[in-house]
Design a protein around this nucleic acid. Structure first.
Length: 285
DNA sequence: GAGAGTGTTGTAAC
DNA sequence: GGTTACAACACTCT
């Protein structure tokens, strides 16, 4: 589920409630979801504090006071981070799993803080993971990612440098985290729709205008989705009532069989680069 | 009830 | 090297 906008929303919510609190316990309940040295992870985190929460693509990076190691958390498709604080819950991640009881059968890691705050890592499919990463592991992880799409450094020139000459389908290229970080299946389809290009097109068939539209759509779709707090994200018991949700803004994703909001042609779905892909065959060329 | 599909990514094969 | 297919897993939908 979580793509860049969803992970960024989780990051912003969590950093308000867990930073600089002493971690009094870490419970590792499912071996498959914990990568690397478990003993070192526990020894580093228990008694420590998270000082900063960063994000690289879809990866969350928890900085730890006074040590070089960081905690990486990847939610993959169905991971959740649920924070239980006095007075409510803050929920980030896959909405399907029920959260009536915590911890539950899908709770794999539990962090407890000295003020009673509890952070749960849940994942139905157990693709997600937590990992204590030393400097070498951080550099290795960093090396896998292309630029952040919302960074100033990712401009039209860098876009051309990265994509020019590519023969892959737009869908596959947009999903490739080593080219640009953080785009997943939903936003890849929405970006192609806004750019008015079919996701099955090869990049090297795009003309100058189409490449410009693709770059602008990439920037604007991700930016707007971040502003709307992502798409498939649920946030509970937020006293301020901020609900968020990019869902109503989706033009093609999940809308196959419905009419295009722009031209009323029926939105189609097919498999492109191995992924379910939605498009309007009239608006997109 | 069987089979297909699901928001990710690492790996292997071409 | 670039690109594509598939597996890892458990659940929901058809």
């Amino acid at each position: 589920m979580p793509e860049l906008p969803e992970v960024e929303t989780i990051r912003r919510d969590l950093e308000k409630v867990i930073l600089n609190k002493e971690i009094t316990n870490v419970e590792l309940r499912t071996a498959r979801c914990v990568q690397g040295d478990r003993i070192r992870l526990l020894a580093t985190l228990i008694g420590g504090r998270f000082t900063k929460l960063d994000r690289r693509g879809k990866l969350l990076v928890f900085r730890v006071a006074d040590v070089d190691d960081v905690l990486h958390v990847h939610l993959k498709m169905t991971g959740q981070l649920i924070c239980q604080i006095a007075g409510g819950l803050i929920v980030g991640g896959h909405p399907a799993a029920k959260i009536d009881a915590l911890p539950n059968a899908y709770t794999h890691v539990v962090f407890t803080f000295d003020d009673g705050t509890v952070l749960y890592f849940n994942d139905v499919r157990t693709f997600g993971y937590v990992r204590l990463a030393d400097i070498a592991a951080q550099q290795a992880a960093e090396a896998k990612y292309g630029p952040e799409p919302l960074s100033a450094a990712f401009d039209r020139q860098q876009f051309e440098e990265i994509f020019s000459g590519r023969k892959g389908k737009l869908k596959a290229l947009l999903l490739n985290q080593s080219l640009v970080a953080g785009i997943g299946n939903i936003y890849a389809d929405e970006i192609c729709f806004r750019a008015k290009v079919l996701p099955q097109r090869r990049f090297d068939t795009l003309d100058k205008n189409e490449r410009m539209r693709l770059f602008r759509a990439l920037k604007s779709i991700i930016s707007e989705a971040v502003d709307k707090r992502g798409t498939t994200f649920s946030n509970f018991v937020d006293a301020a009532g901020k609900k968020g949700g990019y869902m109503p803004y989706l033009k093609v994703y999940g809308r196959h069989g419905e009419r295009c909001k722009r031209c009323a042609t029926v939105v189609k779905k097919s498999v492109v680069a191995g992924r379910g892909t939605h498009f309007c065959s009239l608006c997109q060329k």
